[in-house]
């Protein structure tokens, strides 16, 4: 039986997980030969719409035929075992994969109907509209102020110093970092704690008023308290931004997202409202993963 899409009963899932070597269809260590995503991967007011995307690193295929929509002002979480392609997929959305040698993206990715991989598209402008926060906080070795002002400066968003000050303050406030750093704006951003650095990176990303923010495991290098602050922040930000977040923590996905996408070995297995994914997953692999049988 190869069409994993039709799977869904508990029995089959149990069988598959307990005896992964028997050659039944849903071994967590093999790709499904034929595969279709289950669940509600299409939404009505899509901000971004991804259709049949394949990503290759040289000869190696990392993403297999992924189709999913990202709704406006939605927080979508992407979960899955290490190496399942979540990050690769995320980096395809603002073309950060362009910087990786030998990386090739096929398929159709659109934002507001505009083809992101069209030769006419200006990557620089795209990345200003689709911001990104990385796994490890990577503030520039500049002052806190200059970190936040970096984007506005290169995009000419502020005509005067006063404008710029205002943008910096607003971004830091939205990243709920202002109160902690307002007295030391001109000290090095690298001198902040890990959690503060990550919020600084978020402030830096939102300073250019992007429409979408991609977050690649933004809390994996942080302690629980810093993580809680970032999660609060994500919730606040979701009022104004569309957010796609990759996370290793299923609790985090459950806390912050409206929809959750489960990736497995480069395939998008299931997309459903978060609550459903964590209570009644449709797919056997999803269930195995969220119940901690592997991953």
């Amino acid at each position: 039986m190869n069409t994993t899409a039709t799977l869904g009963t508990d029995n089959m899932a149990m069988a598959a997980v307990k005896k992964p070597t028997e050659g039944t269809d849903v071994s967590p260590f093999e790709l499904a030969a034929e595969h279709a995503t289950v669940g509600s991967f299409e939404v009505e007011n899509a901000k971004m719409s991804i259709k049949n995307v394949n990503v290759y690193y040289g000869d190696k295929q990392a993403i297999f035929d992924v189709s999913v929509d990202i709704g406006k002002n939605e927080v979508i979480a992407m979960i899955g075992p290490s190496g399942c392609g979540k990050s690769t997929f995320l980096r395809a959305l603002n073309r950060m994969n362009d910087t990786v040698d030998g990386c090739r993206v096929e398929g159709d990715i659109r934002m507001d109907g505009q083809d992101l991989y069209s030769p006419k598209l200006d990557v620089v402008e795209l990345r200003a509209r689709v911001g990104m926060v990385f796994q490890k906080p990577n503030p520039f070795p500049k002052s806190i102020y200059d970190n936040v002002a970096y984007g506005p400066k290169i995009h000419g968003l502020a005509d005067t110093r006063v404008d710029l000050d205002e943008i910096v303050e607003r971004s830091l406030r939205r990243a709920s970092l202002w109160d902690e750093v307002k007295d030391r704006l001109y000290q090095a951003g690298t001198g902040l704690s890990g959690g503060q650095q990550q919020r600084l990176c978020i402030a830096r990303a939102i300073a250019v008023s992007p429409e979408v923010i991609l977050m690649d495991e933004p809390c994996s290098a942080l302690d629980p308290i810093a993580t809680a602050r970032i999660e609060e922040l994500i919730e606040e930000l979701s009022q104004n931004f569309t957010i796609a977040i990759v996370t290793h923590s299923m609790q985090q996905a459950a806390r912050v997202s409206q929809r959750t996408a489960y990736f497995h070995l480069g395939q998008l297995i299931e997309v459903n409202p978060t609550e459903q994914v964590f209570t009644m997953p449709e797919h056997a692999l999803t269930e195995s993963y969220i119940t901690g049988r592997f991953g």
């Binding site: 620089v124 402008e125 990345r127 990385f134 520039f140 970096y150 984007g151 990303a205 250019v208």
Partner: peptide
């Protein structure tokens, strides 16, 4: 990570190098 951070802000390659 420094370059990625800058490129992800919509900086060009040359801006990233200079700044």
């Amino acid at each position: 990570a420094m370059r990625d951070g800058s490129l992800a802000m919509g900086a060009t390659h040359s801006e990233t190098i200079r700044r």
